[in-house]
């Protein structure tokens, strides 16, 4: 356990070092940049970091559950958008009191996401089309479909950009100070997913199927039923993320709303090695980076887009490092045993 933490930390430090080199080449001060990054996101803007972590953790959980259970669901960006689209339609046309409105919209968002991942699941189930490419293509289609929806049928009159009118105020996520209640929804979702994956038969079956599909089938697991279930669940999680982004943030569907979270969930799941708890940690960590990017730009004049580069480098180095160090440790262990045998 300790070794795992150490390996992750070494990877992150190496990635930061590479980021620092990029900054030095451009004549910026990396120490000031990193200091202002963490000061901003962990200090006065910590609440915003928590708010920001909601879509990251949820899409991360979606990818984690999928990867751990077998299906290569890369469709979080599209499922997020469709979820948000469903939520905005509900928010524009439903008239309910807040205590019903919010759950109803969250449910709609989850249905939207599950519908979109369901298309890919059905394609696989009936036609054996690899979900890995279908989800990617559905991402692009969702992109254009939502753009069309907010440019024509749901277009706000006289707006300059494609966007919908604001949803009913009853559907706005309540805020305590600046802390959005969407964080609470995220914590509940995390708890449920952790419980399902670690404490239920279904979660056990999923994880076993993810590790060895043939073994689980021989053991009596209904693999194809579980496949469809996992796809629907992970789609619903991504859809929920979309709904929450919309209901906590701009309260309307604006162009390019999902673009920022597009691939982050997949990156988080990869760097977390498809572990549910690590997904939460890395989701929060990525939120720290993304929120702190603003502080870094303000104080150290390092453009915030550098964080995108840093995130990708972290994924590459942490994952590669994990494999590399594990072989290194295993080799040392083997050598020690060999010595013991020689005696």
């Amino acid at each position: 356990m300790k070794r795992k933490i150490l390996i992750n930390l070494i990877g992150i430090l190496l990635a930061f070092l590479i980021g620092a080199i990029v900054m030095l080449i451009q004549g910026k001060d990396p120490i000031l940049a990193y200091a202002s990054l963490f000061e901003y996101s962990l200090g006065k803007k910590f609440v915003y970091t928590l708010n920001k972590s909601v879509p990251l953790v949820l899409t991360g959980l979606s990818a984690t559950v999928a990867f751990a259970s077998g299906p290569v669901n890369l469709g979080q960006p599209g499922q997020l958008l469709i979820g948000a689209l469903f939520a905005v339609i509900g928010g524009l046309y439903l008239k309910l009191p807040p205590f019903l409105m919010i759950p109803a919209l969250l449910l709609l968002a989850m249905i939207g996401g599950a519908l979109w991942s369901g298309i890919a699941a059905l394609c696989k189930h009936f036609f054996r089309m690899s979900e890995f490419i279908t989800t990617l293509m559905l991402n692009m289609i969702a992109d254009f479909l939502t753009l069309w929806a907010i440019s024509y049928p749901l277009f706000e009159k006289d707006a300059n950009h494609p966007q919908t009118p604001p949803i009913a105020t009853a559907a706005w996520m309540p805020e305590w100070g600046n802390l959005s209640s969407s964080v609470l929804v995220m914590v509940i979702a995390f708890g449920i997913i952790w419980w399902v994956m670690n404490r239920t038969t279904a979660g056990y079956e999923w994880r076993i199927s993810g590790q060895n599909s043939l073994f689980s089938r021989l053991g009596g697991v209904n693999v194809s039923k579980n496949y469809v279930l996992v796809m629907l669940l992970t789609g619903a999680l991504a859809g929920l993320a979309g709904g929450l982004v919309l209901m906590a943030g701009p309260h309307r569907f604006i162009k390019d709303m999902g673009a920022n979270y597009a691939w982050d969930g997949i990156m988080i799941a990869m760097v977390a090695n498809s572990g549910v708890f690590l997904t939460l940690i890395f989701g929060l960590f990525f939120a720290v980076l993304q929120t702190g990017a603003t502080g870094m730009q303000l104080t150290a004049l390092v453009p915030r887009e550098l964080i995108q580069v840093l995130q990708a480098v972290i994924v590459l180095i942490v994952v590669a490092g994990r494999g590399y160090f594990e072989t290194l440790f295993a080799r040392r262990e083997a050598r020690r045993k060999m010595k013991g045998l020689a005696k």
Binding site: W263, Q308, L310, Q311, A312, V315, L316, A320
Partner: peptide, 11 residues
């Protein structure tokens, strides 16, 4: 690696 590289390139 492929996914990481694609995102690195995009970033």
């Amino acid at each position: 690696t492929g996914i990481g590289l694609n995102l690195l390139s995009l970033g």
